[in-house]
Simulated scan of single mutants.
Amino acid sequence: MNKPWYVYLVRAANGSLYCGISDNPARRFLAHQKGQGARYFSTSPAVALVYVEAWPDKTKALQQERLVKKLRKSAKEALVASWSGLSPCDA
């Protein structure tokens, strides 16, 4: 059985949203806060993990990440607003 992968959104200090995938979004967010793992946060630090969705494997997560990255900011903000804040990685 494959382990789940996650598509996540992180809010940067400038209000922008960064989309990525990880098998552990909480750990990945901590790395982003330390300035590791993505040059994106070198100009505006990561401040909050604002959206997480689970996918059955890395391939599916990558496909979803591509779709989310193509969304307008308003659609990404709608995803953020819809998120309960709970994910399987919190359990």
Rank of each mutant, 00 (worst) to 15 (best):
S16H: 13
V10A: 11
P45V: 05
G15V: 06
Y18A: 07
A38F: 07
D57K: 11
V68E: 08
H32L: 15
K58T: 00
S42C: 10
V10H: 06
R27N: 11
A12H: 12
G35L: 06
S16I: 01
G35V: 03
S44A: 15
E65Y: 04
K60M: 13
G15D: 15
K34I: 00
G85Y: 01
P88H: 11
G20V: 01
K60Q: 15
Q64M: 06
R28A: 08
K69V: 12
L71R: 15
R66A: 14
P56N: 15
G20L: 01
T59Y: 03
K60V: 12
S22V: 00
G15Q: 14
Y6V: 01
A46H: 13
A12N: 13
N2E: 14
Y6E: 03
P4A: 04
N2D: 13
G20A: 03
Y40R: 14
A91I: 00
R39G: 14
R72Q: 14
R28C: 01
M1I: 04
E53N: 08
S84E: 03
V52D: 04
K70N: 12
Y51Q: 08
S16G: 02
A38T: 13
V68C: 10
P4D: 05
Q63Y: 07
K69M: 14
Y51C: 12
Q33W: 03
L9E: 08
E77V: 10
Q63G: 10
Q36I: 05
Q64Y: 02
L9N: 14
S84F: 02
T59R: 14
W83P: 06
P4N: 12
V52N: 08
R39C: 11
L79K: 14
K73L: 15
S42P: 01
L9G: 13
Q33Y: 09
Y18H: 12
A81Y: 02
E77N: 09
V68D: 07
V80W: 03
F29A: 08
Y8P: 00
N14Y: 10
A38M: 03
S44N: 14
W5V: 00
L49G: 03
Y6R: 10
V52W: 10
A13I: 04
Y51R: 13
G20M: 01
P88K: 13
A54D: 11
